[in-house]
Structure formats: C-alpha cells, structure tokens
Amino acid sequence: MGSISLKQVTKSFGPVDVIKPIDLEIEDGEFVVFVGPSGCGKSTLLRLIAGLEDVTSGHIEIDGNDATTIPPAKRGLAMVFQSYALYPHMSVRKNIAFPLKMAKVDQAEIDRKVDDAARVLNLSDYIDRRPGQLSGGQRQRVAIGRAIVREPAAFLFDEPLSNLDAALRGNMRLEISELHQTLKTTMIYVTHDQVEAMTMADKIVVLRDGIIEQVGSPIELYKNPRNLFVAEFIGSPKMNIIKGAAAEALGAPTIGVRPEHIEVSKTKPKADGAWKGTVGVSEHLGSDTFLHMDAEGVGTINVRADGEIELRHGDTAWLSPQVSKIHRFDAAGMAA
C-alpha cells in the first residue's frame, strides 16, 4: 500500500518560504513526477515526504495515517538519491542487504531477497564488488536494489538519472518504468527534465517557486496547460509564445503555438493568416528538421518540420499555425 497525501504542507528555511501551502493526493501505485526548474522546491517536497526535513506546518499522511512527525526510518519509504549514496565500504551484496539488516531480518531471508533483487537488476555478476568498481549505470541499479528489497510503501527518486550520460539515461528510464509496471508500487520521481516527466509519469506535478502550477497526466498538460509557465515548460522543443498584434489577430493578448503545430510551405499558401519568415538556422536531424525562423511582425518562431524539407539559412517560407491547436492566454498568463 502506498497512498500519500499532503495537507497544507509548508516549509521555510528561516525567512525563505521554500514550499508555500501545498495540497496533493498521490494514489497507491501511481507514478508521480515532480518537475520544475531548479529552486522550485521539488527536491525539498520529496525530502519532506521522506522525513529528511520537518514540515513547517501542515500534515503528511501515508496510507491514511499521520506521518508528519515519524522519523524517516519508520515511514516505510525507500529513496534513491541523485549521487546514489551507496555505502562505499560495503560490497554490492552488503549495500543491498543493509536495510534488511537494519530491520533485523534473519540471514537466510536476507540472502534470498538480495539474490532475487540482484537477478532482477542484472547485478549478480558484480555482487561482491565495491561501488567504486562499478559504472554509473550499475551503481544506479544497486541503489534501486537497495530500495526494492525493503518492499517499501513507496519509492522516492531524487533526480536519479542526472549523473548518467544521455544514452544510459534513456535505458535507465525504460528500466525504471518497467520496474514500476512489475512492482506496481507508488513511485515519486523528482526531475528537472520534462522529457523524463512526460515519458514516465502517470501524473505530473509542475512546481514553481514552491507552488503547484498544475497537476495532471502528461497528455493533459501537453494539451491543456493551465498557464504560460506550464505551457512553456512542458513539450520539446518549447512552445512559441506570441504577443502583440499577431496574437490579437488570433483572439488573445498572448498565444502559444507548439513547433509541431505549424505548417511550413515555400510558397505563399492560399488561406489567410500565414506568417512570412526567413530561416535563421535549420537543424536537419533526419527524422525532423528544426527551423529557427524570423517571422515578420511576429518574432522568432521555432518550427518542427518534415525531415526532408529543403530550407537553408536565408530562405523565405510561410508559416501557418493550426488554428485548432493554438493556446490562448489572458493578460495574467492564465489559459483562456
């Protein structure tokens, strides 16, 4: 079991309010991702749930019981740290066994569970090595193994992939998702990388300056961002934000168009409303082409075009936003 609910939780460090009152419900078995720019309070929020920090006010409930003042060791949660935080003086086996040893599980049981975890995580060949002798990906797996054996109510991940290189990150992302599907345990995952959030989450919590900007499934956030901040934060490449006359022409003080929702043509289209632009930089990736255009009267527009489009620096092209997929925002930046 692992439902967690935060009720009016706040956290201040001295005069700085890092977390302003937050309410959040996390269902059992959900994969929840806290995402936001650095300094938004996402790691602090995770540490509050873990019990590594005290809340300044409010309550944290785990499975319906008030856990606000319970020390981290007794909350039944497991955490995977950014630096992995493996015990450097213990072998992989001892690292994974440590939480069981702390729980005074008997040795035969420990051995069985550690071997199981090592097999699941492909660590059996390294079981007697020290963390210092492992690669980044292997260390990550040991950290996960240490979390799994406890059979926790929920897993907490604090930017676990940020120390890995890009290729490995992709693999580990898959592995963690698979793990979630196998274990069906609640997972709370903190990251600043919206790609990780979009690919892994059942539910994304977007945070800024200690406030929840929006909660929802990846597709909800992509389709219906509640405000400009979420709109810009979710999606890659970033949504184009247009103000002024070009926006007013489409019915709002500010509008947003995602790069993939703009059609490019080399000739002037028949329909009205196309923007004329000059190609600044074109990035040909094969599958896609990213065009950085300077559109007259609109500003810089990024476009995701077909992979085989033939446009180079200095070429002129017309851009037509898909009207149905335009996001409109009022003067305060809220979705209209």
């Binding site: 590594l52 981290p72 955490m79 740290f81 935080a85 493996l86 440590f98 702390m102 240490r146």
Partner: peptide, 18 residues
Amino acid sequence: IPGEILEAARMDGATLRS
C-alpha cells in the same frame, strides 16, 4: 563525507547508533 549517504542510511531504517 556526503550527507546523502547518511540520509540513505536513515531511509534504510538505520537508527542513529547504527
């Protein structure tokens, strides 16, 4: 010594003494 390692121990259920 990185504080995270001691926090990991705390999360792993270690008492202060352990």
